[in-house]
Design a protein around this nucleic acid. Structure first.
Lengths: 138, 138
DNA sequence: GCTTGACCTTGGAGTAACTCCAAGGTGTTT
DNA sequence: AAACACCTTGGAGTTACTCCAAGGTCAAGC
């Protein structure tokens, strides 16, 4: 199976596949006589796993940790649970941040319901004077 | 007013101030005899504006557009409203995406409520078999 | 007068997670 | 033989910074 086949089967571009290999997320495949990469069914599984994690917005580092854990079948899985919990926490934090942004933006938008000249636009006014609210973490 | 004063008054680091100048977001300040940057009250206003926009998660490009519009007081302000609407749209989209991620992560987490061995951990199982849901846009 | 420490300057490298491109090799078809 | 689609590597570009090194300046203290 060549790189374009793997790309097609997983919906991950060839460029990205080579990139994952380079950073060590995806195991190096065998090569054929022309130096083309040759992938196995294992690689499909690996890459699907990675893709799923990315869709869950995990970082490469989190994925690397998960992959590392996945190959130690007899270890306790606390670390996996912990990683998931932390990641879930980050996602929830980010949602809250964005919801705050949404509120401020909506209020700001109401400052200018009818088109005017720029000098009278309440939005620019508003942008000059937002009272910085607290962001929990960045 | 030197760069560290501006930094202190706005809560934006000196590094970031120089960076904003470099990419053209912040107007170039005057220089004193030692070639130190000398800022005016205008710069404080500018930088506060930029900081407010960044807190609203706007990109540098959006901010640049706003700043450009802000100096044309007699133009109609439709474009400002449109920019805000689009940006609000992006924020709402991202919130929805993250909420979907949150649901999937929570379900995944339930696959392993009691610590086990890695080989029996339902989370890894789950990560292998997430049915890719539709993302509206990336 | 000299050292110390706190600033300032510039330029460049590093971060995450890719994406795109150029230059060159290979393989199949017409 | 030419056209076209694929493969290889290496390197640059993206966003929004952050950090660092090497060198210049300035005020205070001994």
């Amino acid at each position: 199976m060549k790189i374009s086949d793997l790309a097609q089967q997983t919906g991950v571009s060839s460029d990205t596949i080579r990139y994952y290999e380079k950073i060590g997320l995806l195991p190096e495949p065998a090569r054929n006589l022309n130096n083309y990469r040759v992938y196995s069914a294992e690689h499909v599984k690996y890459l699907r796993f990675i893709k799923n994690c990315r869709q869950l917005d995990m970082t490469q580092e989190e994925i690397a940790r998960l992959l590392h854990l996945a190959i130690s079948p007899f270890e306790p899985c606390d670390e996996i649970n912990q990683l998931l919990d932390e990641h879930l926490g980050h996602v929830q934090e980010r949602i809250q941040e964005l919801q705050q942004v949404e509120v401020v933006l909506s209020k700001l938008r109401e400052q200018c319901l009818h088109p005017k000249q720029v000098q009278d636009c309440g939005i620019l006014e508003g942008l000059n004077s937002i009272v910085a609210w607290e962001k929990k973490s960045s």
